[in-house]
């Protein structure tokens, strides 16, 4: 009895000392509080969620924000996670990805005084800022580059799931290829999932075996499978990455990445709050806003060569000044006519 009491006292003392020595990790008063809920891809997807997180880290570094991320293990986590952050009264809560659209809609309606932002979907709730990207701009460039690079005049598109958002990638890519070389054949396939890495790898192998030498893998986390598949392919075969700059994941084998600078949007929204005129409604970001584009080809610049890079720059300018309007649906792509450029 005596001994157990001594142990008890020791534990109590240890707890109190431990409690004092640990620094306080909560937000400070007056600090900008930013919350984020990832989709099922989670942090470490080298893609969408990581890009958003980079925006959050930038806000922390440049705006002194307190940041907090809740990861979702399944779609069932979206609402509890959004609500948990809501209950802590953040200045802005980011819902990363259209997957969360309906869940966010519900939570936003229930909490009309809380501000939210959603990436890649459009909600009409007054307390939600919707951010979408013109993925077709970047995909158009990717398609043009792929068509210039292909030795077999046969390239492929691998999407995650066949949904409207992905149609923008597909349409832009196919049209971009036609802009450069109308004879180039483009295979289109969908994994059926954004997080099935194994399936992504397998389908990429099938596409290469089918005669393509370049695969544009717009498949979220499943893109990592595509990158794994090109590892063992001969020189001249490439994968084009998506969302984040994935070029460094397999230097020299990833031709470029179609970068969707989610972090730009995340940071801009935070900064607008800090500056006192928060953003509202639907924001569309494209090449012109420097929120979409290809990487700087730091591992593949030599293979591409100055001639192709120059031609790509011309196309890029044409999109920026509106001479080329990349299509964002299959119908638009079918109707797209290559624009003659000097």
């Amino acid at each position: 009895m005596l001994r157990s009491r001594a142990v008890f006292a020791a534990v109590a003392v240890a707890l109190i000392l431990g409690g004092c020595s640990l620094h306080h990790r909560g937000p400070l008063p007056g600090q900008l509080k930013l919350g984020m809920v990832t989709d099922v891809g989670g942090l470490g997807d080298h893609s969408f969620n990581d890009s958003a997180y980079r925006g959050l880290l930038n806000s922390k570094a440049k705006l002194g924000a307190y940041i907090q991320v809740l990861q979702s293990r399944s779609a069932a986590d979206y609402q509890p996670n959004l609500t948990a952050l809501t209950n802590l009264h953040f200045d802005m809560i980011y819902a990363i990805g259209f997957l969360m659209a309906r869940d966010l809609d519900q939570v936003a309606r229930a909490n009309p005084t809380q501000h939210y932002a959603i990436i890649d979907a459009v909600l009409d709730d007054p307390n939600v800022v919707s951010v979408t990207f013109k993925e077709e701009d970047g995909s158009f460039l990717a398609g043009a580059l792929a068509a210039m690079m292909s030795k077999t005049h046969h390239i492929s598109f691998l999407g995650g799931q066949d949904i409207p958002l992905l149609e923008k990638f597909e349409a832009g890519y196919v049209a971009g290829a036609r802009e450069v070389d109308p004879r180039t054949k483009v295979d289109v396939k969908y994994v059926g999932s954004f997080d099935d890495v194994a399936a992504g790898k397998e389908m990429t192998q099938l596409l290469f075996d089918g005669g393509s030498d370049i695969v544009y893998a717009a498949a979220g986390k499943a893109t990592l499978g595509a990158i794994d598949a090109v590892r063992t392919r001969p020189a001249g075969d490439y994968v084009i990455g998506v969302d984040s700059d994935q070029d460094a994941l397999l230097p020299g084998k990833i031709l470029t990445s179609m970068v969707k600078k989610v972090y730009v949007a995340v940071f801009d929204i935070a900064k607008a709050i800090k500056d006192g005129h928060p953003l509202h409604g639907h924001i569309v970001l494209g090449l012109k806003q420097h929120a979409i584009g290809l990487t700087d080809f730091r591992f593949t610049r030599k293979q591409i060569g100055p001639a192709r890079l120059a031609r790509l720059a011309i196309i890029e300018r044409a999109i920026e000044d509106g001479r080329i309007v990349p299509p964002y649906t299959r119908a638009g792509e079918a109707a797209f006519k290559p624009v003659p450029l000097p």
Binding site: R25, G35, Q68, L70, P80, N81, A84, L88
Partner: peptide, 12 residues
């Protein structure tokens, strides 16, 4: 369950 999530969100 609910408090645990809040604990993660606020006290990490």
């Amino acid at each position: 369950e609910a408090g645990g999530l809040a604990m993660q969100a606020s006290a990490q």
